[in-house]
């Protein structure tokens, strides 16, 4: 699958793809790779928004293919439950394309998108508008009244940021090797380290 198709899929996840692009995706033959990409994007989105994916386990591709081929499916697909919970007032063609795409690719993932949980946005205070999100101190029950000075990555100069990143990386190494946490430890610092180096 080429980069352009990946971009279209990404746009479809955000409900921002135009009709021609959606048609182009639907005409593609490499369904398996698109399935993987589609699922990946939706899993990422689900993780980001802390949402349930009740249809993620349902593979309806066979029924949809039968319908496309003109045969009557064994059971009627219940689409209203899918459509009524979409977060945006999507354009009719886009909505249809999205549902068709989701069903045709065999994934229900993303069918019940909802916005982040109330209060979730409060979790992150913008640090530098980008990759380094500094959590508010008061999340852990120890609020600002505890008198701790909050150090934002954005406030550090490059040398200080590099030094702090080095500590984070070394801790990740300790955590992964000594603490038995495997890749999780390195995942915590990888983006910080790379962005700052």
């Amino acid at each position: 699958m080429d980069e352009r198709l990946k971009e279209i899929l990404s746009a479809m996840v955000d409900d921002e793809a135009d009709e021609l692009s959606v048609r182009r995706v639907l005409q593609q033959g490499d369904v398996e790779e698109m399935q993987r990409s589609w699922q990946h994007w939706h899993q990422v989105r689900a993780l980001l928004r802390d949402e349930e994916r009740p249809f993620a386990k349902v593979d309806v591709s066979a029924a949809v293919r039968a319908q496309i081929d003109g045969a009557q499916p064994q059971r009627r697909l219940r689409l209203p439950a899918v459509t009524k919970v979409l977060p945006r007032q999507a354009r009719p063609w886009a909505l249809t394309a999205m549902v068709a795409m989701a069903l045709g690719l065999g994934f229900g993932a993303g069918s019940q998108w909802r916005h982040a949980l109330p209060g979730a946005a409060d979790l992150v205070a913008s640090a530098d508008g980008g990759s380094h999100s500094i959590m508010r101190v008061d999340d852990s029950g120890d609020n600002a009244a505890s008198g701790m000075t909050n150090i934002s990555m954005a406030q550090l100069d490059p040398a200080q940021r590099e030094q702090l990143s080095a500590y984070l990386l070394r801790h990740a190494q300790h955590s992964s090797i000594g603490g038995g946490r495997g890749a999780v430890g390195f995942a915590r610092v990888a983006s910080i380290s790379y962005d700052d180096q």
């Binding site: 380094h132 999100s133 500094i134 909050n150 550090l156 702090l164 984070l168």
Partner: peptide, 8 residues
């Protein structure tokens, strides 16, 4: 380095 807390 400054003193204080940073959370990521």
């Amino acid at each position: 380095m400054p003193s204080g807390v940073s959370r990521i």
